[in-house]
Amino acid sequence: MENGIPDKIVVAVDTIILAMGQSGLEVMLVKLKNKPYENCWALPGSVVGVFESLEETAKRILVKRVGDSRLHLEQLYCFGNPNRDARGRSISVAYFVLLSNKEKVNSHLTEQYLDMKWFNVNNLPEMAFDHREIVKVAMEKLAYKLDEIEIIRPLLPTKFTLSELQRVYEILSGKKIDKRNFIKKVKNDEMVVPTMEMKTGEAYRPAKLFRFK
């Protein structure tokens, strides 16, 4: 190190992989195997390869964890606190992706990880690095972009009820929404159209199914 400048700065990519679960919005975490973060949970990530772009690194992580690199990735933020990594100076560029079905995720573990689980974003375990902060920033970004269809679309099936759509809005915003006002907003925004089909087989009465325009 010369004049306070480290000899080496590691550039990494961390991915916030999100999906709807029974308990609400959930994030995929992996349990690390190596010290000094042994048994700590973290976001799936990787050091950027010498000949890789940041997005190519993020897609490589997606292939390993989800089996698909074609999903819509969005860059979140760059995290560079000098003390974020106990192993040395590192900078992380975070990307987030939203999944419609977490059951399709590849649960195969690598030599880096002891385990992989989904956690509710409001009930996270002890996490390595600054990954808890990264999840927090991702949730703030989602709440800010709530009116963009591309944020909502991946979290719902192709056909859905207005109640299911409202649940996603409430989870991402962290607020309860009046049902009548929500239906009025959806109709005014013309973001969905009816499918002429009904959702049946549930404990409650059949409900109309909609799809995004």
Rank of each mutant, 00 (worst) to 15 (best):
E202M: 09
K35N: 13
T200V: 08
E170M: 09
M28K: 11
V93W: 02
F210Y: 15
S53V: 03
M1W: 11
M1R: 11
K33L: 01
N81Y: 12
T200R: 14
M1Q: 09
M191C: 13
Y95S: 08
T57S: 14
S163P: 00
Q166D: 02
Q22P: 07
E170Q: 10
T158N: 15
P157Y: 07
D14A: 15
V50A: 15
L155Y: 04
M198I: 04
G4V: 08
K59D: 08
D14E: 15
R70S: 15
K199H: 06
I183H: 11
E170S: 05
N122I: 00
Q166M: 14
Y37I: 01
I134H: 10
R89A: 14
E111L: 03
A58Q: 03
K187E: 11
K159H: 15
E133S: 13
S69Q: 14
L165P: 05
L146V: 14
I9R: 09
L114K: 09
E52F: 04
V48Y: 05
E26C: 10
T200A: 03
I149D: 06
T161P: 06
L43A: 06
E55K: 09
K35Q: 13
K187A: 08
M127L: 11
D147Q: 02
L25F: 02
D14Q: 12
V63A: 12
H131W: 02
I177G: 00
L73T: 04
K185W: 15
M196Y: 13
R132C: 10
R87M: 07
M127G: 02
M20H: 06
V50Q: 15
A138I: 07
A143W: 00
A12C: 14
N39W: 05
Y204L: 01
E2Y: 13
E56Y: 05
K102E: 06
